[in-house]
Design a protein around this nucleic acid. Structure first.
Lengths: 163, 163
DNA sequence: ATCCGTGCAAAGTGTTTGCAGCGTT
DNA sequence: AACGCTGCAAACACTTTGCACGGAT
């Protein structure tokens, strides 16, 4: 069960290039830098604007539209996942090529941080859904809202001070 | 374990009115019609625009902004849940008052239909997250993407015809 | 008389698109 | 020469906001 995390960034870019070329697309400078930024920030969930700003540091002439187009292209190719946390802007997440990505999110309603947690066994539930509803599950998304450790600590302190 | 589904629409409106009044808000005509539309279409996931059009049938003078404001208000009061399926517009879903809402979604990537399925035991997982990450879960959201029964049937037919 | 809530239109935000120019084949 | 890709700006779609008016307390 080899994961992407084992590969170097340039190896991963190579992989993605192959996917692009296989479908008749080119890995232009702009696209490469965009992919690189995503690879270098695997743990974040950047908006298009955020990706744009980082790409601009390495490639100042790039336009926002190109970043949008690249992200959409990568989305279509299932290289990145487009997620919407409901904060007004779509966010983009690298997907591992082996399809085992499926991380879940802990979204803190106090400070807004989004933490990723690893996959667990939702497989049984997916199989049940397939049996029960005839629905062939290809992907899922599980987000938890709540209050993170740090904010809980702050809250506890405040209550102490107030009480 | 009494659910909202047992109550008549006017009873439910009454409940919501109480919640509004308790927080210093009024249940105006506009708000009532909006709530009524949501109650009458419990199973759908309407966008603000869709709600607006339906409300307009019963209350033609209403403005789109009022519907937005009402939906936001109801969201704040946790009467409705604002969901984003990533299709560009937020969608709104009644929440049951007993807090047992938590339905999940089956989103078909072929035809786009969204089906709701009932709650199941994610409680154990939530408890594990609390232990493991110190994250106090207050809510969650679980969406499955895949192909629904109907589209699978169509696909099967097409393959038969082609093969 | 006050104040919340409303309708309308304007502004705002994130995203997409039309188009002319560029680079690579 | 053809064609995909890009940058720019304009267009777009959804949502929020400013403001003056209206209705209820």
């Amino acid at each position: 069960m080899a994961s992407n995390r084992d590969k170097s960034i340039s190896e991963q870019i190579d992989d993605i290039k192959k996917q692009l070329v296989a479908k008749g697309y080119k890995l232009t400078q702009q696209r490469e830098v965009t992919v690189r930024v995503l690879l270098e920030h695997e743990k974040d969930h950047f908006s298009a604007e955020e990706v744009f700003l980082l790409v601009k540091e390495q490639f100042p002439e790039i336009g926002l539209a190109t970043v949008y187009r690249t992200l959409e292209l990568l989305s279509d190719l299932q290289v990145v996942e487009k997620i919407n946390f409901g904060d007004g802007a779509a966010r983009f997440d690298l997907r591992s090529t082996d399809g085992s990505h499926h991380h879940h999110h802990l979204i803190c309603t106090e400070c807004g941080t989004v933490e990723e947690i690893m996959e667990d066994g939702l497989l049984r539930l997916e199989q049940q859904i397939e049996r029960q509803y005839g629905f062939a599950v290809t992907d899922h998304r599980l987000d938890f809202q709540g209050v993170c450790k740090e904010c809980r600590a702050k809250q506890a302190l405040n209550e102490q001070a107030a009480g």
